[in-house]
Design a protein around this nucleic acid. Structure first.
Lengths: 383, 383
DNA sequence: CTGAAAGCGCTAACAT
DNA sequence: ATGTTAGCGCTTTCAG
């Protein structure tokens, strides 16, 4: 709707020839000729318009569908036009607008990841693995940190929903008890794969490390090396890994007919401070343990540091085994025996399953995957 | 337009009653009755339609513009309609489609990050910092790993471009010599902030750690502690940090009138293998150093491990200072003196500057930020 | 205060 | 083989 530049009215306007490629108009009321201010020149520096398929189409005098087809190896396309389009696309520096594509396809080619934190090497490594697999399949990754807060986790879920991710990878906070924010994904047909900190209430794919087996092997190893009064520093009771590693610990004792002593099991919230507190609690026992299986390496290291400070000889007087094989365990003295988990594999595996689920849609059947652990024997556990 | 399920033609079709709530058709040509496969029932579970503003509008018998306005605290809106819309939105579990919003606003509220790798704690920590700041401002983050490959980096840049990110954070690969893929961002008015591995050729914001000063302090500390024959294991020559830390090393020597000896400087590509090779090279010297300033902690740790293996006393016979304060340095014995960089701050700072640039648009003036380092003195450098 | 309509860039029926 | 058209879900003039 063209308005007269003087009277601002729209009636009484007629086209009147073309001047320097621009349409000229005539207002019968005001009796003046005018052309519209060329907005493109203003735009030029303001925000360089990215070339679209329409630009290519115009340049080549074809329709945008033709351009779209040429760009997508559609079969019904003349090889010549195709070549011309491709050339022009390169020439104009065309970058497809994935937002538009996602909108019309109802598919964003993006997956979301929710992790509780990002500080230790653990989650970054998993994310890296997932990101690699995703990138290879042409998927982007949006990462959210729940910071171990249920509320944030709900917000994260909404962000991912609003961004219309095609699938989600989740490791829950330790305080998550309600799962509606996860179920919302399912409700919209968005597949979810849990890893590590999984949700039992939901019937989705899950990728876990075989914590039970890892713990069993670790404690068995201690027993075989002559330790008899073996303690366990576990994780937060809410976590499944805590449960499974504790179970492995118990079963190993049982297997070798060693008594289970309640006072030898303490739970740690995984903070450094609490780790030290737990270590103290154990070492202060009237009958202190001669070995400790720790829920993870950082905890094991705090224990070792404390023991060393107290001149307790490791491994002679105190055997220590950790879990997760973090870099620090390798350089500490004595080097820490630990249960290695295939961390990057967790991410790769989870992402792989998720992509499959996205591809299969309805047909997809949830799958539970349990990754193997390996006991890495170093010095801290060999009497 | 109903087609016969046999002859596929559209003429000769008539309606013929309703069966179980579904319209039945009759093809006069083929003489058969049929109903159309019920797509809605399939759809129901297939992909639950997410509610849109139109759904809300219909439910309330208002126009979608009204809904949009209600959802955005627009001023021209009746408080009652507003309340009704909000209520209905909640009721229908409305999640705005950010893809659509981004498309029409030409603003994705997403920033991209390109980092060379993701393995050490360094980049993940930076990303975490950046992600926090971004999330607080309502921005998502898309992360790309260039894997130290120029080609991948170019691909990464295109991915971000195609996703229409509003800004980009970059730490270059060590082999990047051409910068067209970065300049493409500028060309489209997408602000770029470099961090850590910055690009001198581009006039954009940069966030760096004051490597020079950190190195200077580190070497000065060694000198003050009585070391006189101080070596340096540097990083890959292509990196700026290598250059700056080396400069700090040299200037510290100069400041105390100590001679610079070429054979005491070796360059390491930062791989573990090469770190060991460099350490060996130095320790094998006819006149081995009595202290080494290392380009980073992992290298320092490899050196320490080798020295210990050779029964060289640390710090008595060999002082060692690292750079970056990685967790391992704290637990190794003797504990590693190191230069701490405010890693998460790099990410926070860079993201902050980027968001500001996005907000200011044209008006934005590039800014160079140099973050301070702190020398953390532990045992490995005190004779 | 509300509605109608245009359009962001793209895909995908449908038509030619 | 190519063009036309109708959206995807949303914001944003413009018109009441």
């Amino acid at each position: 709707m063209i308005k007269c530049i003087r009277c601002k009215h729209v009636h009484a306007i007629t086209k009147s020839g073309i001047v320097r490629g621009k349409q000229r108009y005539f207002c019968k009321d005001c009796n003046i000729y005018f052309t519209l201010p060329d907005e493109t020149t203003v735009d030029m520096k303001h925000k360089k318009h990215m070339t679209t398929i329409v630009d290519i189409a115009k340049a080549l005098n074809v329709s945008k569908s033709t351009v779209s087809r040429a760009l997508h190896e559609h079969e019904d396309i003349n090889p010549h036009t195709r070549a011309a389009v491709l050339k022009m696309a390169r020439q104009l520096d065309y970058q497809p607008n994935l937002l538009a594509k996602s909108l019309v396809r109802s598919k964003s080619n993006t997956i979301g990841i929710i992790v509780p934190e990002f500080l230790t090497y653990f989650f970054p490594t998993i994310i890296m693995g997932a990101q690699q697999v995703a990138a290879e399949a042409g998927y982007n990754v949006i990462i959210c940190q729940s910071q171990e807060s249920y509320k944030t986790e709900v917000a994260n879920a909404n962000v991912l929903l609003a961004n219309r991710v095609d699938g989600v990878l989740i490791s829950m906070t330790r305080e998550t008890k309600k799962f509606d924010h996860f179920k919302a994904f399912e409700k919209h047909g968005i597949p979810v794969v849990f890893f590590n900190r999984v949700c039992d209430e939901m019937d989705t794919s899950k990728v876990l490390v075989n914590d039970y087996e890892g713990a069993l092997k670790a404690v068995e190893h201690l027993i075989k090396n002559g330790y008899r009064n073996i303690a366990h520093i576990g994780g937060p009771p809410a976590l499944l890994i805590t449960h499974n590693r504790l179970r492995g610990y118990k079963d190993a004792l049982a297997k070798y007919k060693l008594p289970f002593k309640k006072e030898l099991v303490v739970h740690c919230n995984l903070s450094k401070k609490d780790a030290i507190a737990c270590a103290e609690q154990l070492l202060n026992l009237k009958q202190p343990p001669d070995a400790v299986f720790c829920v993870n390496d950082p905890v094991a290291i705090q224990l070792m540091l404390l023991a060393k400070k107290r001149k307790i000889k490791i491994p002679a007087e105190l055997g220590i085994v950790g879990f997760s094989n973090e870099p620090s365990g390798e350089v500490i003295e004595p080097a820490l025996t630990t249960v290695q988990q295939p961390v990057a594999d967790i991410g790769r595996s989870a992402a792989g399953i998720l992509l499959e689920a996205i591809a299969k849609g309805e047909a997809y059947v949830p799958e539970k995957k349990s990754l193997k652990t390996t006991l890495i024997v170093r010095e801290s556990s060999i009497k």
